[in-house]
Every structure is written in C-alpha cells, then in structure tokens.
Design a protein around this nucleic acid. Sequence first.
DNA 1: CGCGCGATTGAGTAATTTCAAATCTAGTGG
DNA 2: CCACTAGATTTGAAATTACTCAATCGCGCG
Lengths: 186, 186
Amino acid sequence: MSQIFRKHIEEITPITDSEFEYVMSHFTRKKLKKHQFLVQSGEYVKNDHFVLNGLLKAYYANDEGKEHILQFAMEDWWVTDYQAYFKKVEANVYIDCLEDCEVLCLSLQNRDKLCADLQKIEHFFRVKSNFGYVALQRRILSLLDQDAKGRYEELVSLYPSLLQRVPKTVLASYLGVSRETLSRLS
Amino acid sequence: MSQIFRKHIEEITPITDSEFEYVMSHFTRKKLKKHQFLVQSGEYVKNDHFVLNGLLKAYYANDEGKEHILQFAMEDWWVTDYQAYFKKVEANVYIDCLEDCEVLCLSLQNRDKLCADLQKIEHFFRVKSNFGYVALQRRILSLLDQDAKGRYEELVSLYPSLLQRVPKTVLASYLGVSRETLSRLS
DNA sequence: CGCGCGATTGAGTAATTTCAAATCTAGTGG
DNA sequence: CCACTAGATTTGAAATTACTCAATCGCGCG
C-alpha cells in the first residue's frame, strides 16, 4: 500500500530502501469514512495528508453558508489547509471525505525534520510545491479567462474520473457557478 | 543594492558572507525600461527573476486580445512564467515592465545547482514556494467567493501602493472585471 | 492649444443568479 | 418486488449583475 507513496516520491527523486523506511517512520496512517472531516474550520491543523485512496474536498464556507471548493484530493494527492498548517493559524476551510479514505499524515515538525535530515526529501517537497504553484496559476487563469462552460470542460478533461465520483453540485462549487447554471451547460 | 536580496533570503534562513557571495555569482543583473518585455509568449523562458526595483505585470492575452493579469511583481518579488520555466515549454504569458525595472536573473540550471550545493538555498526556495502556494489559494478563494467590489478592496488593502502605481484599467484585468465595472464600484 | 490616455457615464444586451417547482435516481425497509 | 424517501438534477421565469459599445469628461504635457 505504501508502495504508492514510494512511487510518488520516486517520480521526483530516487530513494533507497532504508531511506524510504526512515521517511515512512515519520508518517502515521489514518482511515476515514465518507462524510468524516479531516480538517474543520477553526481548528489548528497538525498534519499534511497524502491520499492513499479515496476522495476528499477542501472547501471554504462563507457567511451565507455557500461552499467554495479550494481543491479536490484523490489518490496520490496531498491535502490540508496549507495556510493553517504552515503558518500555525486556525483553519478556515473544511476537508471532508467524499468517499471512504486512507491517508498518510505528516506533522509540520516531522516534515521539517525529514527535510533537514534528507536533502532528497527537501528537494522532493520543493519540486512538488513548484508544480503545485503552476497548477494553481492555471486555475486562476481559467477563472479569469474562461466562462462556466470552458472551465467545466477543462476540469473534466483534466480529471475525467471526478465526473463519475462526485455529484455535479459539488463540481459547480469548484467551478464557481451555481448548480443550476452548470446543469444548463452544453 | 543586492543587500535587498540578501535581506530577502535572510527572512527565511541565515547565510554567511561567503555563501551569499557564492549565491550571487549565479545571478545576472538586468535593467529594463518601462514597456519593455521580460518574457514574451511563445519564447522559451531561461530565467526566474527577483525584482530589485520597479513594477511588472505578468499577463495572459487570449484570442480576443483580452488581457488577464496573473500576477504583479514589485520590489522583493519573484516573477517569471513558471510553467514555461520549470517545464521547459514555450511561454504563454507576457511579462511587461510598468515602470523602469532592475532584476536579478537566475537560470533553472543555476537554481538547481545552488539548491544542490547549499541546502539552505533549497530550503529557502521550498519555503518561498510554499508561501506562494498559500497566496495563490487565497486569490482563488477571492475569485470564487467575492464580488468585484470585495476583490478590489482586498487587493488595495493588501497592496495599497498598487493604486498609486498602476492605472485602474490594469487593476481591472487583475481582478477579472471590465474597467467600466471597476469604475462603477464604490 | 490640442493630443492622448485614463476614467466615467449611459443604454442596451448577454450571462448568471435566485427562487420555485418538477423530475429523476439510488438505496432502504417492508 | 414494491413503495417510499433523500439527494441530485433539471427546468422555468424573474431579477440581478456585469458586459459591450459608444460617447463624454478630465488632465498632464509637448
């Protein structure tokens, strides 16, 4: 099972058996059922999470109770409230399991320790973060440049499996349109 | 002048004189006049850029000739087309000087070399990238949750100097609204 | 003075939202 | 197997918001 994780690291940097074992010793494993929360707004956020299987949504709920999805997370993805995690402030998002999930948890302390001990791991996280930054820029461009239909098509072409796994209502709140508008597209 | 840059690094990690000198030897300095381009769509992007002074905009121009600003960059900020830079593909944005500028240029090769040689620097870039990721998430949330007025107020409260330095037309294309709509706010 | 750029204003149009109701679907318990 | 229910999706119609296109205004500078 954690071979998934090893493969994930080795897409960026090779790693020996003993190094991998050392890395793994800094993670804890956690199982969650559908509808359980990994993070709740107002809490402090101890861990970053690598998704072994399942699907989650990270969303912000505004004063009127409207939800805006910041990111999905499925197999191979990382998810937490990064603002809260890195800056040690209270979370302002919820992270909710859309399916039963299994994740690997990494505290900030252990992350920093791993990065200090193994430059490979610091390199890994640097490269990951760079790619994440690029992905967010693409999403911003999509929000600025495309209409609802264009954004929807971009999303399903990037992540076709989402269409099978989540209700359209949820996609709408990722795309920034009402569910009625999304329903009327095409 | 490069003291600005040293201070910038030391906000993340302390660094010795000789280390700093070594780091600096991997950068080149470049001056640009207002209206000059640092990056143009279609080119390959050799360098990331640290802004010593001046102000730039990085924008995407779509088929209808509409501009969407991906980011501004002023003193202390980094800017390039990160997708093009990291993935070695052609740029799809323009980066344009809104004022006379002076920047420090870092090629990907030199960046990787510095990171490999000095773990401090790899750490620096990891932390920077993490913070950048958080900032982009905040902007996405702003685009999803706030209306034009809310986004405008958030922008001017975060970067009040922008208001003095760039025409409102340009702010509008950062915020994702027409200049007429922005003009009608308040 | 007059040019050019940016900001503003007006009017009509297009897109999206909201609210409401109807329909569809999958899962549950009898 | 069927009826029922909750959630999801669709549809309609009115209201809102933002956009486009066009004209005007204001100001700094050669």
